[in-house]
């Protein structure tokens, strides 16, 4: 039950990050509610034309966890053959694989992987995830990519993982606008120090990094959940096999014994009658 212990740890990490993420989101809502996102310039906003796409495949380094990694690979294959098909023909889709299994899976489907990061899981902490996120954000703001998507397993509970395709960049501020009711709740006459733009330009990258870190944590927790389920199924399957084999063995034994008894009895009968 090693995965069970690891799952607990991963779950705790998600619970830890939640208040941070929620508060940050709330602050962002406040800022957007009071100033509107449309006039706000930021380097993570939409690029006018989408020329190059990066897909980040978040999988695990280890296997034996059911469809966990295969699902991500399948989803990417589907994605680049449907929505992003025109981009694929032009060869402007790059795939970054985080996790060995994802990289292997994609390679076996003849999908080129342009970069891999495997060492992230060795000692997972915010600072290392932040570095990768910063790298992605820099690449985006330099114009190397015009859209970055994350594909990962979202953690629902130990038994359920939800495969998710999430837009990482350009940043989505509109999503925060919809929740009108929550906006009203938070409207206060805030003093912004030093000013709204400076705050926005530190809060947005921060929230992006948190989004990325959360995706990684989700994926790690899902991995352990999926492995637990897979191992449990394997155990069930093995015990079923053992039961069947046992039955077969007993049947064979019984018929052998019956045969032997018949032989003796008929032998004795033959002696008696003679």
């Amino acid at each position: 039950m090693v995965s069970a212990a690891k799952l607990r740890k991963a779950q705790d990490a998600i619970i830890q990050i939640r208040p941070y993420a929620e508060k940050l989101h709330e602050i962002l809502i406040n800022l957007v509610a009071q100033n509107g996102s449309s006039d706000f310039e930021n380097k993570y906003a939409d690029h006018p034309e989408v020329k190059r796409i990066l897909i980040v495949a978040i999988t695990s380094n280890r296997g034996l966890c059911g469809g966990f990694n295969a699902n991500v690979v399948k989803m990417i294959e589907e994605l680049i053959n449907s929505v992003y098909a025109p981009f694929r023909q032009k060869g402007v889709i790059d795939i970054l694989a985080i996790g060995k299994k994802g990289a292997d899976g994609l390679k076996s489907k003849n999908i080129a992987v342009s970069g891999t990061i495997h060492q992230l899981y060795d000692k997972l902490q915010y600072s290392s995830a932040e570095e990768i996120a910063q790298g992605l954000m820099d690449a985006y703001s330099r114009g190397e990519y015009d859209r970055i998507d994350l594909v990962y397993n979202q953690f629902k509970n130990a038994a359920i993982q939800k495969l998710t395709v999430e837009q990482f960049l350009p940043v989505k501020l509109e999503g925060t606008k919809h929740s009108e009711s929550s906006v009203h709740k938070y409207i206060n006459n805030y003093i912004f120090e030093p000013n709204v733009h400076d705050i926005m330009s530190t809060v947005i990258p921060r929230s992006l990094k948190i989004q990325f870190y959360k995706a990684i944590l989700d994926s790690v927790a899902s991995e352990h959940g999926a492995r637990m389920t897979a191992m449990h199924k394997a155990t069930d399957n093995a015990s079923e096999l053992v039961r069947e084999l046992n039955l077969q063995y007993n049947k064979a034994r019984q018929s052998a014994i019956t045969g032997e008894i018949l032989e003796i009895v008929s032998g004795a009968n033959a002696l008696k009658s003679s």
């Binding site: 406040n30 805030y190 003093i191 120090e193 400076d198």
Partner: peptide, 19 residues
């Protein structure tokens, strides 16, 4: 340590967001 300078917060401080 605010970006615009160090500051203290006491009881009944005005609503503020600061980096």
């Amino acid at each position: 340590p605010g970006t615009g300078g160090s500051f203290e917060v006491l009881m009944n401080h005005a609503a503020t967001i600061s980096t």
